[in-house]
Amino acid sequence: MSLDERPGLPVEPGEDTLQPSSRIPWWRAVWGDRMGRVGLVLVIVVLALVVVGPMIFPFAASSFGLSANSILQPPSGGHWLGTDELGRDVFRQVLVGGQISLLVGLSATAIAMVVGAGLGLVSGYYAGWRDNVLMRITDFFLVLPTLPLIIALAALLGQSVVITSLVIGLTSWPQTTRIIRSQVLSLRERPLVLRVRSLGATDRRTIWVHIFPNVSPLIFANLVLVLAGAILSEASLAFLGLGDPVHVSWGTMLHFAFTSGAMSRGAWWYVLPPGIGIVILVLGFSLVGHSLDRILNPQSRGAR
């Protein structure tokens, strides 16, 4: 950035960043927003329960196979959230299942971000035929119905945490590409970028040093929303019986609850907790995402 300080190259204020507010750390900006603060609290509570919970809460020993009396028991002192169709402790399963849901959501999002932001940067920076081809492909994947595609891929490739993450990640990128591309398109016409390029900076350097830092807040805001969507996708996929049968996520728990007839036996303690976990986590992330979005685009906050 030292180029900008040379005499004869005046810098207009704010032209080298997206928004002045992007200088404030994101968590402080989100915390200042009421919706964002609620979202952060929800996410932190779920994270604490799911990551630390299994280490500190006492669990009754799983007693499956011992007696038919222990299956689908309502909540009690021994089993805080009752037992499942095999007599296992539901509370423990909910905490551990949250880890799997979160793990799949995070890895799928990481894949989607690398692909989505990468294609968006390339497509927006090199306008012309590369942009044309990439946008055709992006639009094609944008119209494909996501869940049917995920289901088809998972049914063909198999059921494991890795495959589920890959399948969701590789189908969740087109929206990100679109958003990043349109931002890069406008950035590359800014005086700063034009100047740097005319001084002979390589494309790679221009993208990494001058464009990427300016779109990264946007990528981050989008990441949180993609993460919320990925957690929902994983839950739906697992509910339909395509989750990892060994590493049981919240969606897989609900699949077993549904197929084992826990519903008709009125086992609400088996059905409510995993679903509430999904809702709180997804709501938390989408509140943070919307709050970030409002911070980055103040004009969309609405007329008073």
Binding site: A228, L232, A235, S236, F239, L240, G251, L254, A257, F258, M263, G266, W268, V271, L272, G275, I278, V279, V282, L283, S286, L287, H290
Partner: peptide, 18 residues
């Protein structure tokens, strides 16, 4: 709206069944 958006479709159905 954000709360409703966060509901997994299948789970909402299960709750209504309950």
């Amino acid at each position: 709206s954000l709360v409703l958006w966060s509901l997994p479709t299948f789970w909402t159905g299960m709750i209504l069944i309950f």
